[in-house]
């Protein structure tokens, strides 16, 4: 029995994984960045399937709109690399591939032996608004205010740090 959603999931995930593979293998960096955009978009669709619409929107805005574009800028600023002639993988890539497969195998094995892995999503309660709950949770002092504020401080520190590191000293 195959549900339409399952078909959507399989298609999206296949495209996403394919795009991800292109990201890590493509020689041209600008193309790799564009493949990254595609992969991130696929993940955004999965977020929709998970009924987390806010995260899908955030994914598009932050990852695709900001991070991916930033990377394209970075690639273009370091122009010489964009047309780097040699191989784009280093000498230890076979080991890296083995390790990546090992990790994948390990996780799949764990998923296989976990008895709740096959569970289905419970229906959301009537009138449950995840986005509102999230907003309240983030600003309630007894819930996640402090982690949230610390994350914002981290962001600020990263901003200042990025400026300082990239500052061109005459």
């Amino acid at each position: 029995m195959i549900y339409p959603l399952q078909v959507v999931f399989i298609l999206v995930s296949a495209v996403t994984l394919g795009a991800a593979l292109m990201v890590v293998t493509t020689r041209n960096m600008v193309r790799a960045a564009l493949w990254l955009v595609l992969a991130l978009f696929g993940v955004a669709i999965l977020f929709v399937l998970l009924e987390a619409g806010f995260f899908a929107v955030a994914q598009v805005i932050i990852y695709i709109g900001a991070i991916a574009i930033l990377m394209i800028f970075a690639v273009m600023l370091t122009r010489r690399i964009a047309q780097d002639p040699g191989p784009q993988l280093n000498s230890t890539w076979p080991i890296a591939a083995v390790i990546a497969l090992l990790v994948f195998g390990l996780i799949v094995f764990l998923v296989q032996v976990w008895d709740r892995a096959a569970s289905l999503p419970p229906p959301l309660p009537q009138g449950f608004a995840p986005l509102q709950e999230l907003g309240v949770a983030l600003v309630s002092a007894d819930r996640y205010l402090i982690p949230f504020e610390i994350a914002s401080v981290l962001l600020l520190a990263a901003l200042i740090g990025a400026i300082v590191v990239a500052w061109e000293r005459k």
Binding site: T92, I99, L102, V103, L106, L110
Partner: peptide
């Protein structure tokens, strides 16, 4: 850095197996 990371991940995988 990448070779260090290979070692780190390898160590992580092995240790995960051992703990499991």
């Amino acid at each position: 850095v990448q070779q260090y990371m290979i070692m780190a991940v390898l160590g992580f995988v092995v240790l995960s197996g051992v703990f499991y």
